[in-house]
Design a protein around this nucleic acid. Structure first.
Length: 476
RNA sequence: GGCGCCGUCGCCAAGUGGUAAGGCAGAGGUCUGCAAAACCUCCAUCCCCGGUUCAAAUCCGGGCGGCGCCUCCA
């Protein structure tokens, strides 16, 4: 498949370097708070990449997504909460896993925590290798990376430091550095802060070292195939990861760098938008989505409607439109269940095959999910039309379902919706009993009673639809 | 100030040289006990101004507007 590589600023043909297995690292969440829907835009987009590589391209995956469970904010917030760091961050890891499941993220092969003993040890090893290669210096008990020792520093971000805004705050650390652009690998112990000593002196990890160390430890010999994350990580995080990893190993770190654009929030129509971020305080999480009456599957669909390298303007209107679109798909799939037994339609196979090919080629085109979804809807209209004309039977339905399952292995929306629908607000037995009672009422032409039952269920979140002789239900 | 992205129907959004996918909303119609769903028909020449070309939403230049990175951030 074609994949945009930030390193070269071009789309390139992607295939794993070895054994048909993709070695991929995703920068995960800093677990000092519940992830918001901006965070999850990135994770869902990368989940689609993972699914496309696995289910469509047929590669094996070894995918690492970390939890950053030590940094200034996690330490600060855990202290505020009066909890040990590990326990405090553990709660948000749990919350993340719940949200990830709700959004249909496939579990990755490895989800390490930075503070796991073996990862701290790996950071020590990486830093020692950097020291041995002459890339570091020590100052006030901290260890720094000296970027002047790495000639191609900046190759990912391509920043022109000469032209940087005068007065821009470059140095946010209070530690002493030789050059403002140098960054800390290992922070000296501060009173009241947790500390480790993996053979380099007591302290705690700088922001970037964990990802280099874990990627190298868990994914083997560099270069890995793909390193991914939100677009804001290009600089400084990923640039510094490259410096650390390549300084330590003398080998290229990652072949592809994939970055997902931001989710933007528009609070009032026409008021302009800004990126959603915890520091701006304009965040919504999955709970907020649920409180507004929307489901996670709807949000997942909304994410996929915009190419991952374009900003996504989030609004409640957009959510409502996404919900209607998902409904159209679900209703179509439900229609397939009620088709009569009749001879298979001879020209259906080629129509389905064409759609399958078109869908796959859009996905293989740098994950053009929006165009792929368009293919799906084209097919829905054509097949709905055939159903109306009485041309489709049960055996055709099976072939159609199979194709949509193939689509959904990459998109992951329909299966998610189905899982949500398996837990309706009214017990299924009761719904079916009431449908039976209503059918009797209708046969007796007691429409008042029939409408009362439907209205009653509607108020409880269940919608009934009559289709010929049968009645089907769905969640509102 | 430097680097970069974006501007397509009322809303969301594909399309990067060959004459505008798809979804939502809307109008009219078919079907229907009602409701819903579904189907059919209708609904844009692509922010503005120049240029290149047989041909531009797509390339180039200049505006205007939105956003990002340069500082913690997905």
């Amino acid at each position: 498949m074609r994949l945009y590589n930030t390193l070269t600023r071009r789309e390139e043909e992607f295939a794993p370097a070895a054994d048909g297995q993709v070695r991929m690292y995703t920068c995960g969440l800093t677990v000092y708070a519940r992830g918001h829907i901006g965070n999850f835009r990135t994770f869902v987009a990368l989940d689609v990449l993972r699914r496309a590589l696995r289910h469509q391209e047929g590669y094996g995956m070894r995918h690492v997504m970390n939890f950053t469970d030590v940094d200034d904010r996690t330490i600060l917030e855990s202290q505020k909460a009066g909890l040990p760091l590990r326990e405090y961050t553990g709660r948000y890891i749990e919350a993340f896993l719940e949200d990830a499941a709700a959004l249909g993220l496939e579990p990755v092969e490895v989800s390490p925590r930075a503070t796991d003993d073996e990862n701290v040890a790996a950071m020590g090893e990486t830093i020692r290798a950097l020291e041995a290669n002459g890339h570091t210096y020590r100052s006030d008990g901290s260890i720094y990376f000296k970027i002047a020792t790495l000639p191609d520093y900046g190759k990912l971000a391509r920043l022109d430091h000469a032209g940087m805004k005068s007065g821009a705050r470059i140095d946010s650390d209070k530690y002493e550095k030789e050059d403002a652009r140098d960054f800390v690998l290992w922070k000296a112990t501060q009173p009241g802060e947790p500390a480790w000593d993996p053979g380099i002196g007591p302290g705690r990890p700088g922001w970037h070292i964990e990802c280099s160390a874990m990627a190298l430890r868990l994914l083997g010999e560099p270069p890995i195939d793909i390193h991914a994350g939100g677009i804001d990580l290009i600089f400084p995080h990923h640039e510094n990861e490259i410096a650390q990893s390549e300084g330590a190993t003398r080998k290229p770190f990652s072949r592809f760098w994939v970055h997902v654009e931001h989710l933007m929030i528009e609070e009032e129509p026409g008021a302009g938008s800004e990126k959603m971020s915890k520091s701006l305080g304009n965040v919504y999480n999955l709970q907020d989505i649920a409180e507004r009456g929307f489901r996670a599957s709807t949000l997942r669909y909304l994410y996929l409607g915009v190419h991952y390298r374009k900003q996504l303007k989030f609004s409640w209107t957009a959510m409502a439109q996404a919900e209607e679109a998902v409904r159209r798909l679900v209703d179509f799939l439900a229609r397939l269940e009620a088709l009569p037994v009749r001879p298979a339609r001879p020209d259906l196979a080629s129509r389905l095959e064409a759609a399958g090919t078109a869908f796959a080629s859009h996905i293989a085109d740098d994950l053009n999910t929006a165009a792929a979804i368009g293919v799906m809807f084209d097919l829905v209209r054509a097949l709905n039309s055939s159903i109306d004309a009485g041309e489709l039977g049960a055996s055709d339905a099976e072939a159609v379902r199979t194709l949509f399952e193939r689509f959904d292995r990459v998109l992951g929306v329909l299966s998610l919706r189905r899982a949500e629908d398996e837990r309706p607000p009214v017990p299924v037995e009761e719904i079916e009993r009431l449908i039976g009672a209503r059918r009797d009422a209708r046969l007796a032409r007691n429409f008042a009673e029939a409408d009362r039952i439907r209205k009653d269920l509607d108020a409880r979140g269940i919608v009934l639809e009559d289709t010929g002789s049968t009645t089907r239900w769905k969640r509102k």
